[in-house]
Simulated assay, not measured.
Amino acid sequence: MTGHGTTSRTTTWLQRLLVAGGVLAAGYGVAGLVTDPSVAKQPYLRYTLTVLLGHDLLVMPLAILIGLLATRWLPQWARPAVQGALLVTATLTAVALPLVLGYGRRPDDPSALPRDYHRGYLIAVAAIWLTTATLLALRAARSRRTSATQHQEET
């Protein structure tokens, strides 16, 4: 018991130390941005507002709506698989979106972003949802078998 309490205190202390380090690093970055006259502030401000407003006005309401619909319309046995697929799809989209939109592509440098990112993204999303559909089909079959077995035991 004593060892567990010590580990918990150590973990809490370490977490607080890491948070403090992160806050100090962020503060150092903001101080450098604000005080350095050679840094253009407008792009940073535009980026920060876009991220904050995009998250609060678009991403979060959409995530809440999708979660509400999934909870309301999906059977209990299907929710974890669909929620996992939605999470993986959202993560993939966040990572792939700049490539799909072609940010960084330059006509004078054909080796910059040389792949067909649209097709690659669609293939990856299809693989996620095909895997999810397969898992759901297996779970549905198991759920039907369990229901049939319980129904036979009751009669």
Score class of each variant (00 low, 15 high):
residue 2 T to R: 15
residue 7 T to V: 13
residue 9 R to C: 04
residue 11 T to D: 09
residue 12 T to C: 10
residue 14 L to I: 14
residue 14 L to C: 10
residue 15 Q to C: 12
residue 15 Q to W: 06
residue 16 R to G: 15
residue 16 R to P: 00
residue 18 L to F: 13
residue 18 L to N: 05
residue 19 V to G: 01
residue 20 A to L: 13
residue 22 G to N: 09
residue 23 V to D: 03
residue 26 A to P: 01
residue 26 A to K: 02
residue 31 A to P: 00
residue 38 S to Q: 12
residue 39 V to E: 11
residue 40 A to Y: 06
residue 40 A to I: 03
residue 40 A to T: 13
residue 41 K to E: 11
residue 41 K to P: 05
residue 43 P to E: 08
residue 46 R to G: 01
residue 46 R to H: 08
residue 47 Y to D: 12
residue 47 Y to F: 14
residue 49 L to V: 07
residue 49 L to C: 04
residue 50 T to P: 00
residue 50 T to W: 09
residue 51 V to R: 11
residue 52 L to M: 10
residue 54 G to A: 08
residue 54 G to S: 04
residue 58 L to D: 02
residue 59 V to E: 14
residue 62 L to T: 12
residue 63 A to Y: 01
residue 63 A to K: 02
residue 68 L to T: 08
residue 71 T to G: 09
residue 75 P to D: 04
residue 77 W to L: 06
residue 77 W to P: 03
residue 78 A to L: 02
residue 78 A to M: 08
residue 81 A to V: 15
residue 81 A to Y: 00
residue 84 G to K: 04
residue 84 G to Y: 03
residue 86 L to R: 00
residue 86 L to F: 05
residue 86 L to H: 03
residue 88 V to Y: 01
residue 88 V to I: 14
residue 89 T to C: 06
residue 89 T to R: 01
residue 91 T to W: 11
residue 91 T to Q: 08
residue 92 L to K: 04
residue 93 T to D: 05
residue 95 V to R: 07
residue 95 V to P: 01
residue 97 L to D: 09
residue 98 P to F: 05
residue 98 P to G: 10
residue 98 P to D: 07
residue 101 L to I: 05
residue 102 G to Y: 00
residue 102 G to I: 04
residue 106 R to V: 07
residue 107 P to G: 12
residue 107 P to E: 09
residue 107 P to V: 13
residue 108 D to W: 09
residue 108 D to A: 15
residue 110 P to Q: 12
residue 111 S to G: 12
residue 111 S to F: 11
residue 114 P to K: 03
residue 114 P to N: 06
residue 117 Y to D: 09
residue 121 Y to A: 07
residue 124 A to Y: 02
residue 127 A to S: 11
residue 128 I to H: 06
residue 130 L to S: 14
residue 131 T to R: 04
residue 131 T to M: 03
residue 132 T to P: 02
residue 132 T to R: 02
residue 133 A to T: 12
residue 136 L to H: 08
residue 137 A to N: 06
residue 139 R to T: 05
residue 139 R to A: 14
residue 144 R to C: 00
residue 150 Q to W: 03
residue 150 Q to I: 03
residue 154 E to Q: 10
residue 155 T to D: 11
